[in-house]
Design a protein around this nucleic acid. Structure first.
Length: 239
DNA sequence: GCCAACGTTGGC
DNA sequence: GCCAACGTTGGC
């Protein structure tokens, strides 16, 4: 159980059908349940699916109408104690986990939650990214091996990710299981990706909308097919 | 429903 | 360690 950060945030919207650029937050339409009493914005977000949000704030969106098949997940490779809990979970830690598999618990951001719950499916490949460290970047590849299911840490009052507002018959937070596939042939740093991203902004290249830069705080991000292949090819080139 | 205050992420 | 960016909270 990787101690993920308590909340990794970012805004993204996963749009199902059409994607209009901009949606700021995904807006779950309240499925059937209309809210009685006042509901916080966050709670509103809690519901279910999303559609293009009303207030478009203008932001480019990488949200394609497609459903995603690749992802990027962030984790901290260095020891850091938060609320007396170790936040470290590196690619090596995944490697030494039983069956090289771990649940991805502790994510407390609605957009990330929606991806975990609704879109990440077994067999899909995922970049493993090291954040909050000296050299942030992509270190390896893992794979979703279990689709979204309730994150048990939300119900454990002793866990730092405990959420007293979540009920067992209507869990708020979800996680998937991921299994190590392989390390990258070479480390691909954030700096390198950033350079390419900036070039691609001008040239219209494949990394122009990379989530690491367009949604820098989202800890579970979709990666398009084009982004995935492009980054994989970087493996075979010199840094 | 707005928005100021606050908290967190995560690069640098 | 700093702090910009941005999500969340809660008063009104």
């Amino acid at each position: 159980m990787p101690p993920k950060r308590a909340s990794l945030k970012r805004k993204i919207s996963h749009c199902h059908n059409d994607c209009d650029e901009t949606n700021e937050q995904d807006v779950p339409e309240s499925v059937g349940k209309t809210k009685k009493k006042s509901v916080t914005k966050a709670e509103k977000n809690n519901t279910t699916k999303s559609f293009p949000s009303e207030k478009s704030k203008s932001k480019p969106s990488a949200c394609a109408s497609q459903s995603y098949k690749h992802w990027l997940i962030k984790s901290e490779p260095n020891s850091r104690i938060e609320n007396s809990v170790e936040m470290k979970f590196s690619f090596n830690d995944l490697q030494s986990s039983p069956n090289q598999t771990s649940s991805w618990d502790g994510v407390r951001n609605y957009q990330a939650r929606n991806f975990l719950r609704d879109q990440m499916k077994p067999g899909q490949d995922v970049f493993f990214y090291h954040s909050n460290c000296k050299e942030p970047g992509i270190v390896g590849i893992c794979q979703v091996v279990k689709e979204g299911y309730p994150d048990h840490t939300q119900f454990d009052s002793k866990n730092p990710h405990f959420d007293s507002s979540s009920q067992k018959d209507n869990p708020k937070w979800f996680m998937v299981d991921v299994k190590l596939v392989r390390p990258l042939k070479r480390f691909i740093s954030l700096a390198e990706l950033k350079g390419l991203h900036q070039e691609h902004l001008k040239s219209g290249g494949p990394l122009q909308k990379l989530g690491l830069f367009t949604r820098p705080r989202l800890s579970v991000q979709p990666i398009t097919d084009e982004e995935w292949s492009y980054i994989l090819e970087l493996e075979n080139k010199d840094a």
